[in-house]
Design a protein around this nucleic acid. Structure first.
Lengths: 348, 348
DNA sequence: TTTAGCACTCAATATGTTCGAGTGCTAATA
DNA sequence: TATTAGCACTCGAACATATTGAGTGCTAAA
């Protein structure tokens, strides 16, 4: 389909455009990349590439700009090269729970680190899939009318809720209840729930009303796909020419601000494990046409963990992928060294 | 110092400038505010007001713009009017802990609500003052080598940390330890700490090393002034003309993004209880010269709770103060109705 | 003390000109 | 047949130059 040379020209254009951010002309390619060929030759190739939908001109007499299709080709080439190297791969998810501030802390750190290494915006998320399992539960009395419901999920995610329960269940009753639930740790929540309901009906009939509240909370914690999401520093965006226009900035920002929208996006693209890149309009969220998303996903035991970077379509994919790989490898070190030695800050 | 009429002109200028955001000329004031007087008269008054430092001209042949001094006068007038009304005032802090998601949830909601009502950026924070007291503590085993340290402070703030403890303290020992600490609930942490250390030395000598970790965590939770901070939606900023310039936007944004900086700011200005307004350069944080901060602060039992709104110097102070008052009153209703009936969204 | 009138200032807007990077096409060349 | 040099052409960016209009300060009259 594409001749050897066309491919060469195309990748050069993409590379050059990513570096400089300006339309690239035939002369530039002739001088910097295919030094043997003249500008006119390149020009002909470019015209063909435009016909094939890989390049476009913002206006006559301007240089060429890569289309999403061209980025796709470029990124796939990068990914393929990466696949040949030895990937660390595998079981990084488990390490997260060893972080001193728990999974949340680890994610927060990872997202921040990703922002810094990539110079774009890092993200980190866990979503607990439908089949989330309880590890442990506990009730802690706060004062006469409140107690705290503490839930630890398999995978190390911790939730807590304060529940207002005006009646006076004794501490022992609560402990009993907790013990009862904990013996069933590892079961599906639906099973636990059923057993629990029976137990309450039998032994705690008069407190049923209060217990229902707690059950509802548990339901809301355990039910459905819930995503805990962290976004690293956004301040890099200000230095990116593509976002100097407040309109573009706004589009990206408002997506990053609404966790729900972002979670939906990650949920959609993180389904298959491993590293993937979604370029520009390939992703149909409105306002994200000019952005790309690099996403690494890993599912284990009912949770899916995702690390990602979002930035302009014209992002330095190689750097971003390297940053992700690095964070994936270093994830165990997160609790020790606060930040890396600070490479990868060379751009602009 | 200021004649009646000068005051009238000045307040008119401020009012007009807040509404329209453009330099206001003598003709406008003559036509819209002091209808009896001609533009020339107003012009003379304005010249005097400029000499006195209340107004300034961006350039010759432009209208006048209020200085910080003028805003001060204007805001003080608003605050004084407010003081005459019956303030609800008082003990709103207590209500926060009744929120179903605890203090954190209540703060998150409040900050968001403030953003929506004010059309600027809402903030909500609790800082636990030096004399924070323990309400309750608990240890929950997560797996063989980890347990969760759960801390509830007087005031309802909940912290939890996962601690890696490779040795095998039995569940009973941990419960003993927790019970020991809980008997001292309400004491100063320094006292508890000392008693605790003795207890560990006597009874748990061989686990001392592991216990030290837990103690350190407790120290880090309880020591010093720590601020938990929430920021409401920032998307209103995009519609404010003052922030259309990406530079100005960036200045405010980077402060809002670094929690530390923001916490420092709130700490500095929230010291005295009640409602205060900090206008433009009155606050010396770099980058915030063009912004104002409306802050309501309330201290009780070792915690200080603050609600605030940050926006451009040229903000609608009346609306913001009303929004704050409303949230202060409604704070008890937060757990019931998801959002207000939606007034106050009329601007632009 | 107030106001009408007038000359003056200056940002914003519109209009015109130049400049240069880049293209497409054609004809000469290897 | 593939490549290249040459040339006319296009069009945005950058700069210079009017034009407009809102607003001022000052002065002299009411």
């Amino acid at each position: 389909m594409l001749t050897e040379r066309q491919l060469e020209v195309l990748l050069s254009v993409v590379h050059e455009f990513i570096e400089r951010g300006e339309e690239v002309g035939s002369r530039t390619i002739s001088k910097r990349y295919l030094k043997g060929r003249s500008a006119a030759t390149i020009r002909n190739e470019m015209a063909d590439l435009e016909d094939m939908g890989y390049l476009m001109q913002p206006h006559t007499s301007a240089g060429r700009v890569p289309t999403t299709r061209a980025y796709r080709l470029f990124v796939d080439a990068v990914l393929q090269r990466r696949a040949h190297e030895d990937r660390a791969g595998g079981e990084w998810t488990g390490r997260l729970r060893e972080h001193r501030d728990g999974v949340r802390g680890a994610l927060a750190r990872a997202s921040e680190l990703l922002s810094q290494l990539s110079n774009y915006v890092g993200m980190a998320a866990v979503t607990q899939l439908k089949q989330a399992r309880l590890n442990k539960i506990d009730f802690v009395r706060v004062d006469t009318s409140h107690f705290l419901l503490l839930v630890i999920l398999d995978g190390g995610v911790v939730h807590h809720r304060v529940i207002n329960m005006p009646c006076d269940l004794s501490q022992e009753t609560l402990e009993d209840l907790a013990r009862k639930i904990n013996t069933m740790s590892g079961y599906e929540w639906s099973e636990v729930r059923e057993a629990l309901q029976n137990y309450i009906m039998r032994g705690l009939g008069k407190y049923a009303d209060s217990c229902r509240k707690a059950l509802e909370e548990l339901d809301s914690i355990l039910a459905g796909e819930q995503t805990t999401l962290f976004t690293g520093s956004l301040s890099n965006l200000f230095d990116i020419p593509d976002f100097q226009d407040i309109g573009r900035f706004r589009a990206l920002f408002s997506i990053l601000e609404q966790e729900g929208e972002l979670a939906r996006l990650l949920g959609q693209y993180g389904k298959k494990d491993g590293l993937g890149v979604i370029i520009g309009e390939e992703n149909q969220a409105p306002g994200l046409e000019g952005c790309s998303l690099v996403l690494s996903s890993s599912s284990t035991e009912g949770t899916r963990t995702m690390l990602g970077v979002i930035g302009p379509k014209r992002m330095n994919y190689e750097r971003v992928i390297a940053a992700l790989d690095r964070v994936l490898c270093d994830i165990e070190g997160l609790s020790e060294n606060p930040d890396g030695e600070g490479d990868g800050h060379d751009q602009r």
